[in-house]
């Protein structure tokens, strides 16, 4: 089929010159890998260009309030987008949940964490890592789980806290903490736990870790922002998101 093969890039170029725009997106660090993949697909499918910046949601909030040139935010929580909305810094009605995080109790050692998490009660470990519950949604969820199991006080002296879920993962993956609560998306690859051992924490033990996205006021007339928001809620993007261990 020589003809369509020639035609496709031509059409693409044509469509880009007509309506291609660029959108700058602030993305929660935990969503780095899936977002890179989604962006590649999105650019291929629509011709729009996407600039990604990865980082901590709290930092993005401060930057957005002080005029950072982002048109969209993919937050690690659902509070920050709601807060920005109340402050009139978003495009009204553009807020939506793009992923729901899953929590795992994970150890880099195979066979260390059992399938029911009883290792928590046996307590034969020196350090247990979790993200700072004041800052990170996964840390807050981890505290809720420990509270639900009645272990929050007994285990508190053994806590080591990462400033975010990435750092928490490093504490556990380097073996400095025997085990810790991390995001399923960090240890999962193609639907399976990559290394070590894990207990997939039941969702009923903590409030859902909703990650919301919102178009910022600066992205009001940006066609690429609107298109990306729609794309993220489409089945193609959702399949990618699920493959990385999120629910949606």
């Amino acid at each position: 089929m020589p003809f369509p093969r020639l035609l496709a890039p031509l059409l693409l170029m044509l469509s880009m010159s007509v309506q291609a725009e660029e959108v700058s997106v602030a993305v929660a660090a935990n969503f780095t890998a899936p977002m890179q993949k989604i962006t590649t697909e999105f650019e291929k499918d629509t011709g729009h260009k996407v600039q990604l910046a990865f980082g901590a949601t709290g930092k993005f909030y401060a930057q957005i309030r002080n005029g950072a040139p982002f048109q969209m935010l993919l937050s690690a929580d659902d509070e920050t987008p709601a807060k920005l909305e109340r402050e009139g810094l978003t495009l009204a009605g553009s807020r939506f949940t793009y992923a729901v995080g899953s929590l795992v109790l994970w150890s880099a050692q195979p066979g260390y964490v059992d399938a029911d998490g009883t290792v928590l009660r046996q307590g034969g470990f020196k350090k247990i890592a979790l993200a700072n519950p004041r800052l990170a949604p996964y840390g807050k969820a981890a505290m809720e789980v420990l509270a639900a199991l009645g272990l929050a006080d007994t285990l508190a002296p053994r806590f080591v806290q990462g400033e975010n879920i990435t750092q928490t993962f490093q504490f556990v993956s380097t073996g400095n903490a025997e085990l810790g609560f991390v995001a399923l998306s960090q240890v999962m690859q193609e639907g399976r736990i990559r290394t070590g051992s894990a207990w997939r924490v039941p969702d009923r033990l903590h409030t859902p870790i909703r990650q919301d996205a919102v178009i910022l006021a600066t992205g009001r007339d940006n066609a690429a922002a609107t298109a990306l928001a729609r794309y993220l809620q489409g089945e193609k993007a959702r399949a990618i998101i699920r493959a990385f261990g999120y629910q949606i």
Binding site: G58, Y61, K127, N132, R134, L135
Partner: peptide, 21 residues
């Protein structure tokens, strides 16, 4: 590891305050 009284120094504490808004 942000342990109070052992490893939570001022710079980390300030960072926590900022991150927690």
């Amino acid at each position: 590891g942000n342990i109070p009284g052992q490893t939570r120094v001022v710079s980390v504490q300030i960072y926590d305050h900022v991150e927690a808004m």
